[in-house]
Design a protein around this nucleic acid. Structure first.
Lengths: 159, 159
DNA sequence: CAAATCAGGACCAAAGTGGTCCCCTTTTGG
DNA sequence: CCAAAAGGGGACCACTTTGGTCCTGATTTG
């Protein structure tokens, strides 16, 4: 089915919640895990686990202690879906052939597909890299961006 | 990791073997499961399972009985990677949101992402639909096709 | 009728995923 | 200086999925 795992799905949902919260409170403040759990409607332990992974992946910044919490480490327009998927699900690699490492197929003599898989993999990464969290956070945002600017993948100053 | 399962990987490998065998024996003959297992270097029971699924998915045709076997049901240029993946791994659907059925997110009120996911999903299906088995069967075939036919080529210095 | 061959599905071990919990460190404020 | 509020890092386990094999039945040929 080529499905990304539920943690990743939730993670993107959580991040879109953060974007909307930031829009509300313009001097963006830190949100604690319990607050984010409430806002997203998900269970706290799970939300907490996902938030930690997003920090490790460089998507979020955190502060400990009383009044601590999480915030985006970059503008929503500078965070791609690809980066989020990589943070929560590891690097995209459709097959072993398509991966980065030295893990060759053991049947590489029979397999002329390696370069082809790499190309396909790159194409998909490219697609996911071109979608930003900012677009994802508004209904129809991805489609609108695709219509407005069908050539270049990123627009300099959003909206 | 967004990886397709091993059956699918093997399936595509098997099909590229079939393409090459067809090229050898120009009046394309039926190949039995044991022959295909030998040609592909995979274990017979597993190859057999995959071949059956490919028949069910309309990629292969089969004939039973003595001298029976399998052959492609269309020309390699008319079989897309997308069709093969669908036959072996079900329809592509990155998230529940992106699926076809009436399976709405239960939190759809909080979730403006549904249309966005569908768009992303379509984009990936489109990519995989544009790659043919014929291209996949020759080393560098996909890249060559992409260079020749630059319908929507991205920046060459993209990397 | 026997042999070859595909069809369908049962079955099980192994791996992966999802979700929760625990204990530790950091920070703030009385 | 200590207690409370928060995040950090894993361990842990139940559940599902996947990978692979095998068995039984249906077709076809000679």
């Amino acid at each position: 089915m080529l499905r990304l795992n539920r943690q990743t799905d939730y993670g993107i949902m959580i991040l879109t919640c953060l974007v909307r919260e930031d829009d509300k409170a313009m001097p963006p403040r830190l949100l604690s895990a319990p607050e984010i759990a409430t806002a997203s409607g998900l269970a706290l332990p799970n939300v907490s686990k996902i938030l930690k992974a997003l920090v490790r992946g460089g998507i979020l910044q955190s502060r400990r202690g009383v009044q601590g919490g999480y915030q985006l480490s970059r503008l929503p327009a500078d965070i791609s879906i690809q980066q989020i998927i990589t943070a929560l699900d590891g690097p995209i690699s459709m097959t072993d052939c398509a991966g980065e490492g030295p893990e060759q197929c053991d049947v590489s003599s029979l397999c002329p597909m390696s370069a082809n898989w790499k190309y396909i993999n790159d194409k998909i990464v490219e697609t996911l890299e071109s979608i930003t969290l900012e677009q994802m956070a508004i209904p129809g945002g991805v489609l609108a961006a695709a219509n407005n600017d069908s050539d270049s993948t990123r627009n300099p100053e959003g909206e």
